[in-house]
């Protein structure tokens, strides 16, 4: 089915569904970058198809039972001109009872078969050749991405190639956690899957259109669970390959000006190196995001703030100002050092 007919279906069906779903009908027209009803990748699409089916069925149950209830409440309410006699007493009926056992059983069987089919179609998939492998590691309040085949390490902003349905080039994600449970959820691309320590999970996406897809961590993981945002950049093949090439360069910290080299010195002589990696320097910590190509990212701190010099400065001075409770400590540096540091970080393209 095409997108268009899906939307028509959706509209037709939802009008009948529970009041809540009736409300979802206008809602699906509200521009929401995270709506589950605007799928852009096969897993999300098959889920969408199933959702419509399930909603139609339960909507059907609803349109039968709700009016029945309403009718009987209105019809049989006590009138005031009544003679106060008791109505005839009816104790039950086996035939009727049987009817409302059998019909729901049939409905349940139908729902179950459709669901089982979609489960298998999403879960039992082996990566075709031409797919990209990414290891996603959840950390308290940020995302680490490793491309084992491409030898790239980056953070918070996932880049994947667009996948033409005719020649699918899906991306397979291996989901790990470094600390507590997290969940990877980009609604337009796929359903969520948890990242659990000691319990590797797999999921896959094959985005059909280029663009930026948003989401966020969907399993409570601690204080800043709310600001563990997800950004997936889906790029046309060439653009993706250019990005890969850039990421594989060493950091081009050409310490041209003295401000930058002093920034580098500050960086290397403070605890930054314990937690962060910048390839080509002594820093190889893994507790915080890899900063080698920090400037290639649009945001810092897992999407909590745009990547601007002011925000960087604010972040280094006091991470809590942007993300209270984040695991990066305020280092208590002088203004001068902070400025130098920022200038240095600004060179990490």
């Amino acid at each position: 089915m095409s997108r268009g007919s899906h939307t028509k279906w959706l509209r037709a069906l939802l009008v009948f569904c529970a009041p809540a779903s009736v409300l979802a009908e206008p809602a699906s027209h509200v521009a929401s970058p995270t709506s589950i009803f605007a799928p852009a990748s096969t897993p999300a699409q098959s889920i969408f198809g199933l959702s419509m089916f399930v909603l139609a069925v339960v909507g059907g149950v609803f349109v039968v039972v709700f009016p029945l209830l309403a009718y009987s409440v209105v019809k049989f309410r006590d009138r005031h001109n009544d003679d106060h006699s008791e109505p005839p007493q009816i104790y039950g009926s086996n035939q009727v009872e049987l009817a409302w056992i059998v019909v729901p059983i049939l409905i349940v069987v139908g729902l179950f078969l459709a669901t089982a089919h979609v489960i298998a179609s999403i879960q039992n998939v082996t990566p075709p050749s031409g797919s990209t492998e990414v290891v996603v590691i959840g950390h308290q309040y940020w995302w680490e991405y490793r491309y084992p085949d491409l030898k790239i390490v980056t953070a918070n902003e996932l880049h994947v190639p667009v996948s033409d349905p005719a020649h699918p080039t899906p991306t397979f994600l291996t989901l790990l956690s470094a600390d507590t449970d997290h969940s990877f959820w980009v609604p337009r691309l796929a359903g969520k899957t948890d990242l659990i320590p000691n319990h590797p999970n797999r999921m896959w996406i094959d985005p059909h259109e280029a663009g930026l897809f948003l989401g966020q961590c969907a399993q409570y993981c601690g204080t800043q669970h709310a600001k563990m945002l997800l950004r997936v950049y889906v790029q046309p093949r060439e653009e993706f390959e250019r990005w890969v090439r850039d990421q594989r360069q060493p950091a081009n910290a050409s310490s041209a000006s003295s401000g930058i080299s002093s920034g580098k010195r500050v960086f290397e002589s403070t605890a930054c190196t314990n937690c962060h990696t910048i390839s080509g320097t002594a820093a190889n910590g893994r507790f915080g995001p890899d900063l080698t190509h920090l400037m290639s990212r649009d945001t810092i701190a897992a999407g909590a703030a745009p990547n601007t010099p002011e925000n960087l400065r604010l972040w280094i001075r006091n991470p809590d100002a942007i993300k209270p409770g984040s695991k990066m400590p305020a280092m208590g540096l002088s203004d001068q050092d902070v400025n130098a540091l920022t200038a240095f970080l600004e060179t990490l393209h």
Binding site: A18, V58, V61
Partner: peptide, 17 residues
């Protein structure tokens, strides 16, 4: 009925949590 929608596992992958 919303419980049943949640019970359809793939739908739940979207709606869960």
């Amino acid at each position: 009925l919303t419980g049943v929608t949640l019970g359809a596992a793939p739908f739940n992958w979207q709606l869960g949590n």
